[in-house]
Every structure is written in structure tokens, then in C-alpha cells.
Amino acid sequence: MLIYLLNKTPFEGVKNLILNEIIFFDIKLNLDHYDALICTSKNALIALEKNKIPLNLDMQIYTIGDSTACFAKQLGFKNIKIAKKSYANEFFKEFKEELKNKKCLYLRAKNIASSLNLDLKNSGINLDEMIVYENIFKSSNEILIHPSVFIFTSALSVENFLKNYSLHEDDIIISIGNSTAKKLLNFKNLFVCKKQSIEECVALAKKLAFKTPF
């Protein structure tokens, strides 16, 4: 079976299906005003880089996902904490007490699937938010083959896919996490990856692709 990945990250034996475009906003920011930086996507850090924001490399960075943490390290940040579980609600539970004594900045997309920002504020955390990028729909004329394995890496990737295509009953669907899976509950053959990682999703897809179709 063919494997489609709704993400631009290249993998051998996987076809990338790009139905989105990231738009970065022009921002001005002084990171010295904050004790902690919250980034749930690598795109938030890319926005800092694109806007040539002076980096406070000693500030505490809180991330979701290994890729975001690795990129923060590449930029030179020294104090990086990664949530044990790659879900916004688990991030909140893990760090809410630790963040209460800090002035925090959450760099985020225009549209987010979780309520992390509200949860943090409602728990009394001193939090500023800054919208630094937007993920917008990009149509495609590519003809898809069914049945195939489809890997969805965000709730928005599901929404963008369904604007352009439909899933067939015998397709296999892989979701990177629970928030994304909520958009796919009406479809059969849905698998939620145990670890919120594109690499893990692809590994699962390759296992399922060589099994007997449902």
C-alpha cells in the first residue's frame, strides 16, 4: 500500500502530500522581559529566527515534541525542558506549578487545537501570548490512490485534507495524537501513534502497509 504523509518531512518510501503553507508574521519582541518561553511547535522558533529576534539563550524553554526541542538546541538555547508526554493537556499538568512563579511567553499559531493558553491563564500563570505564524490551506490537483495509508500530523492537516479529498472505507488512517484523532473518529481503521512523533507515525505506517488490508 502507498503511504501518504500530510507533512513536508521526507521519508524513504513515503509520499508527501502538502496541503498547507506556513505564513510567518512580522514581529517585534524583547525576550529579556520573560523568564520562560513556551513553544509547542518548531514554527514558533523559526518565527524568531526569521524576524532576527535577539535570543536570550539562558532563558528557560518549555517544549512539546523532540523536534521543537532539537531546533531550540540548534539555535543555542541552553535550558530546554521537554514535556514527558506530547499532548497539550499533559504539558499543562506537568509544568503548571513550575510556571506559576515565572513571567511566561507562549509563541503560537493563529489557530490552535488545544486550550493550553486558556488553561495556563485560568490557573493563575502570568502568561503573554504572541501569534507568530499561520497555517493556511493550499489546494492540490494530485490524484490519490486508494486504498492507502494516510498519516495526519495535526488537526489542521485533517481539515485541509477533507477540503480537497475524501477517505475511503478501506484506507488506513494514522493520527499523530489525540487532538488530531478527534477529527477522524468517523472513519474506520484509525490508529493513534503512541508517541507524538512523525518518525513513529511513519514506522507504524510501514508496518501496517505490509499487512493484509482490512
Rank of each mutant, 00 (worst) to 15 (best):
K188P: 15
A205D: 04
A47P: 08
N141C: 04
I145A: 10
A47H: 07
V192P: 06
G65T: 06
T9M: 14
L6Y: 13
K100V: 11
C193A: 11
E199T: 14
N117K: 14
Q74W: 09
D171N: 09
H33T: 12
V132H: 10
K52R: 14
F191N: 02
L118F: 12
E142K: 09
I64L: 03
I174F: 05
S67C: 07
I198E: 11
I143V: 15
Y165L: 05
F161H: 06
S140H: 05
P54K: 11
A205T: 05
E94H: 11
Y87V: 13
P213L: 07
S148C: 10
Q60D: 13
L190Q: 03
N186C: 08
E98T: 12
F137W: 14
E49L: 13
P213E: 00
I125R: 07
F24S: 01
A109M: 05
D128R: 09
K138M: 12
V14T: 02
L190M: 11
F95S: 09
S179Y: 03
Y165D: 02
L105M: 01
V202N: 00
S140A: 05
F161N: 06
F25N: 13
F191D: 01
V202A: 03
I53D: 00
A205N: 01
K206R: 09
I82P: 00
A44F: 10
C70D: 11
K52C: 11
G76H: 04
F150P: 12
Y87D: 15
N79R: 15
I136Q: 11
K206I: 09
L48C: 06
K73Y: 14
E90D: 13
F92N: 09
E129M: 02
L2G: 03
T153S: 15
N101Y: 06
I23C: 03
G177K: 04
K206W: 06
G124L: 12
K42Y: 00
T153Q: 07
K163P: 02
K188T: 11
K50I: 01
F137E: 11
L99Y: 09
P10Q: 12
L156D: 13
K163V: 05
